[in-house]
Nucleic acid binder design. Structure first.
Length: 561
RNA sequence: GCGCCUGUAGCUCAGUGGAUAGAGCGUCUGCCUCCGGAGCAGAAGGUCGGGGGUUCGAAUCCCUUCAGGCGCACCA
């Protein structure tokens, strides 16, 4: 019996009570689906609901009286073993073991699809994340969005959405000029510009640019006149840097379907197109020689300059054009993940969204993630390129590996500032809960290997009623939750919920496995029984869910560790 | 000054109105005579920053206050 079946059973029990006059409630006050949840305490049964507490007042009765009535109606339902009224009026429901145990079969047979749903079905989602400027390697903040963003994409896909992962390649504007000047200065052995970029990677890229140019049969870019030289370093430097970023992300398990160049918006006329469109809608005005968008009409603090008085497009013009472009490419949901240092952008971008006639927070959704702080010896470490303590995506992967890095960054809420301890990173990487989850998975695989040796086979039968121990009903209940966890993670855009779920599941698996008197498999001199087979089904169901969950996080599920 | 995020165990963090607030790490005590000890069982450790309010019920919602982070450009 699934939670939704239970929920329906509760609804019909309520409807029946109303129909025979026991419950004085207008028919439209009967909820179509009743919320059931896993109680914290096992003694409180497999599922619990507070529906009696919520409806008693409207019905002019007491919660306990209503609960008693529902309990009596529910108890005769097949698949339900017991219904108890507890505390102020909770209904605690215990399923019979066979009904609960059937889930193991369902999961094994559903395989990699168990956990998938349709809550986001039919939606075309554009998910933009990372989008770090190609003026340096991806640092720790960007890595966080890579881990969280990719997991979010996977969770949305598992919920039926069609997701396009997109990276906005910011190759237009002053910071790129600074980057190019920094490369040129470094290549010529000159002092880095005051507002330029330092760091070892600048020297490496500068050398590579020279080598690339010479290899292409071009003149040494260092010898060109300044303007041409800078352009040469810009073009090849950006290309080079972006290649490295792509490679690092790929090594991290994150690949984007679209790498969108900001330059192209300006070259293609997309900016003019977007501004024209806003002008037609009547949201644009001219003042002080500049072109403004009246974002205050849509809740922004102040109006925004779109075209500066020198005729250049302001930065937001690119974002406006980019948003419109995404919508014109047919995306229903445009999701952008940004660091907390950009949260001031939400107001104006939502205003832009509204100015186009779209629904803010629907067609455009901006997710803000808080910063990652580095900590060493309990003290915060300020990252600075000059001090040479920038932690890049490659540094992180070198230190702990992709799995541990992705897991630790994806397991906390994006609303949280997270602290990353550099000493811990370097030394005790086994502290990462990812190993706890992966270990549980490899343990299920070890059981499978041994089961084959001992002649325990799933195909010889499955009696779900034999999964009747409290540790087994705990495991089954947890397995049952997985699809809801995935759906909730997608709906709330919080993939970390999957990680926390896996940790709980792994814990319950370890507990179940480790009981001395209830081994999964027989001793070598013992004969195989139905109980061993039933436990193997459960073992394999856990294995499947651990594997499915780890995949949603982009983490491997090893068969051996 | 205004805005967004955060404040939960010694540390890092879960917990979007339910019952006795949880996990990992750290500390302490047990557990390998056969399925993987990267594990399990147990103990200690909390005025959920403070104060009001709403509710049958608040870590969760509202108000207020304190503390920390991040923002408030014709920069990108």
């Amino acid at each position: 019996m699934t939670p939704s079946e239970l929920s329906e059973a509760l609804s019909s029990a309520l409807a029946a009570a109303v129909a025979d006059g026991t419950l004085a409630l207008p028919t439209d006050a009967v909820p179509a689906s009743v919320h059931v949840e896993r109680p914290r305490q096992r003694e409180h049964g497999d599922w619990a609901t507070n529906v009696a507490l919520q409806l008693a007042k409207k019905a002019g009765t007491t919660p306990r009286a209503l609960a008693e009535d529902l309990a009596a109606r529910l108890a005769v339902h097949p698949g339900i073993q017991a219904v108890e009224v507890a505390g102020p009026g909770f209904l605690n429901i215990t399923l019979d073991a066979a009904s609960a145990g059937e889930l193991a079969r369902t999961i094994v047979e559903t395989g990699a699809d168990y956990g998938k749903g349709a809550s986001e079905a039919g939606k075309k989602v554009n998910l933009e994340f990372v989008s770090a400027n190609p003026t340096g390697p991806i640092h720790i903040g960007g890595v966080r969005w890579a881990a969280v963003g990719d997991s979010l994409a996977r969770v949305l896909e598992a919920s039926g959405a069609e997701v396009t992962r997109e990276y906005y390649f910011n190759d237009h504007g002053a910071q790129i000029d600074r980057f190019a000047r920094s490369l040129l200065a470094r290549a010529r052995g000159e002092q880095a510009p005051e507002d330029g970029y330092g760091g070892q990677y600048i020297a490496e890229i500068a050398d590579a640019v020279v080598a690339d140019a010479l290899a292409a049969g071009e003149p040494d870019p260092r010898t060109l006149p300044d303007a041409e030289a800078q352009e040469a370093f810009r073009a090849r430097g950006v290309q080079r840097m972006f290649g490295e970023i792509k490679q690092s992300l790929h090594d991290f398990g994150v690949d984007f379907a679209v790498y969108f160049h900001e330059d192209s918006l300006h070259e293609s006329g997309a900016v003019d197109h977007a501004v024209d469109r806003l002008r037609q809608e009547g949201h644009v005005f001219d003042a002080d020689g500049a072109v403004w968008l009246r974002t205050t009409d849509f809740g922004d603090d102040k109006d925004r300059v779109v075209i500066k008085s020198d005729g250049q497009a302001a930065y937001i013009a690119g974002d406006i054009a980019y948003y419109l472009d995404k919508r014109e490419r047919g995306f229903d949901d445009v999701i952008i993940m940004l660091g907390a240092d950009h949260h001031g952008y939400i107001g104006r971008m939502m205003a832009v969204c509204a100015a186009f006639g779209d629904e803010p927070n629907e067609n455009l959704q901006i997710l803000i993630g808080q910063m990652v702080n580095l900590v060493k010896d309990g003290q915060p470490v300020r990252m600075s390129k000059r001090a040479g303590n920038v932690l890049t995506i490659d540094d992180l992967v070198d230190a702990v590996g992709v799995d541990a890095a992705r897991y630790s960054l994806a397991r906390s809420s994006a609303d949280q500032n997270i602290d990353l301890d550099l000493d811990l990173l370097a030394s005790q990487k086994n502290e990462n809960p990812v190993y706890y989850v992966q270990y549980a998975h490899s343990r299920t695989c070890a059981v499978d290997r041994n089961a084959a040796d001992r002649g325990v086979r799933r195909e010889d039968g499955f009696d779900p009623a034999l999964l009747d121990h409290p540790t087994e009903s705990a495991l089954l209940g947890r397995l049952n939750e997985f699809p809801r966890v995935v759906a909730q993670a997608a709906q709330l855009r919080e993939p970390h919920r999957v990680a926390r779920y896996l940790e709980a599941l792994a814990g319950e698996y370890h507990t179940w496995y480790q009981q001395k008197d209830r081994r999964v498999l027989p001793y070598p001199d013992e004969s195989v029984t139905d109980t061993h087979r039933a436990r193997l089904w459960l073992n394999d169901a856990v294995r499947q869910v651990l594997a499915n969950g780890l995949d949603l996080l982009g983490v491997t599920a090893p068969e051996r560790m």
